[in-house]
Write a protein that binds this DNA or RNA. Structure first.
Lengths: 243, 243
DNA sequence: TCAAAAGTGTTTATTCTACACCCATGA
DNA sequence: TCATGGGTGTAGAATAAACACTTTTGA
């Protein structure tokens, strides 16, 4: 293990000790139809090495030399899903001793949000046994990943209205009902349809996609897209959409 | 530098690369009287080694083997201020390549809040040239610490009403005016006195400290203390004090 | 008696919440 | 024609914001 001299910060002392390993773990969320209703899902990979062989875990790996943390997270996202650009936010760092039985490991946790239409690309990565799991039916998770997932989830809940997080869970074109469903699923509680729409109107960061409509056997819905510039201006003024 | 085998997460590959170093940096805030008004201050240490010798920096240092991140932050806080228990919150991790010219370093940033009566203990640490600096009169900072400080500050602003952060900036006994001043200084904007007090009353997590009063040459103020249990109950119900 | 900060209520504007009905479509 | 989800407005409640005067003390 590495030894090093302390020359950091304001310290005048000299220390030597082994370095902890630095990893990135990533909770990749999406909203999918799952037996009847839309459900929030997280991408898990099955471990085939000890410790926790056979258990499910969040995708993750070591940070490369001179690689930015967000770049490492983006790399993991790409490897697992084939998605090159996704919504990515840092949740925080965890380095509790003993969290990895192999040694002292500090992990930086990220949360990612994917639209459902990107899922086809999933096999593009290196063919690991990655699978979507509904949050309501989670298997046992390896390491402290259960706590990490919990933290990532509450982070996502808090940031739903910020940074356009909710739009990251939808394709470019979407109906207001789809948007509301996604929000309800993430927040885990129902929202009032009219109040929801009013807030969006006030923000004025959606534009109707002309002509396009989608259909069931009922009245078709208007399709919208996000005007990113307007949204950012709105977010600057108001902070967030107050779902 | 350390080499390692990749056996983390769900990966089946084997990698080898040097590990980044892991440090903790800490932005320690307090509110002090400074030429006339109360001002938010941050504790900086003067570097005496290259790089950035002579420049000011946030206190920080390497994370020890099998040391928790928050423990490392608490250790830094103790070393710099002599304070054994302080309000401490993680802001996030930063690992941009090149942020430390000596090599790839990931730092986990913490924010700490101290009451003004703890300052006497400052020299207890290892006698470094640590000094309080008003945020309005900052010197040039080493590394990317200017950005770190910015991040820590906005984190503290967001969490003022959560977790009793504002109370961490005051002694156990305080007047409502002191509390309001501290909030105003951190937020950087004035607050309405009556509305401020109403919110505190509604929360019902303060108790009057009987008999005690403090004084200038004007009417004395009632002294209060925080009832931590009640505050936590309130925070659970309401989320935070809505300053 | 005066300066200086402490303390206290009410009114208004804004925001949030709850709620019910008509519309367009495909089967 | 009917079942299904799409679309719209309003009234009451709760919350937030603005605002001025009286009190107590020490000098």
């Amino acid at each position: 293990l590495a030894k090093q001299k302390e020359v950091h910060g304001g310290s005048r002392r000299t220390y030597e000790w082994p370095r902890p390993a630095v990893t990135v773990d990533i909770a990749i969320f999406t909203v999918l139809e799952s037996d009847g209703g839309a459900e929030l899902q997280v991408l898990l990979v099955e471990r085939d090495l000890a410790p926790f062989a056979g258990a499910w875990a969040l995708p993750g790996g070591f940070v490369h030399e001179n690689e930015d943390l967000s770049a490492a997270a983006a790399r993991e996202l790409l490897e697992e899903t084939g998605v090159r650009e996704g919504y990515l936010e840092q949740v925080g760092a965890v380095g509790t001793p003993g969290r990895d039985p192999r040694g002292h490991t500090v992990t930086v946790l990220y949360a990612a949000l994917l639209p459902p239409d990107k899922h086809v690309l999933r096999a593009t990565g290196d063919a690991r046994s990655a699978q979507w799991h509904a949050l309501t039916k989670l298997p046992e998770l390896a390491f402290d990943h259960s706590a990490l997932l919990e933290a990532a989830l509450s982070h996502v809940r808090r940031s739903l209205g910020r940074n356009g997080a909710c739009f990251a869970l939808l394709p470019d074109h979407f109906t207001l009902t789809e948007l509301q469903t996604v929000c309800e699923v993430v927040l885990g509680r129902p929202l009032d349809r009219r109040n929801f729409r009013r807030k969006l109107e006030e923000g004025a960061f959606l534009s109707e996609v002309k002509g396009e409509m989608r259909t069931g056997r009922h009245r078709p819905a208007q399709v919208y897209q996000l005007i990113r510039k307007r949204f950012e201006a709105h977010a600057q003024r108001e902070g967030a959409i107050p779902f």
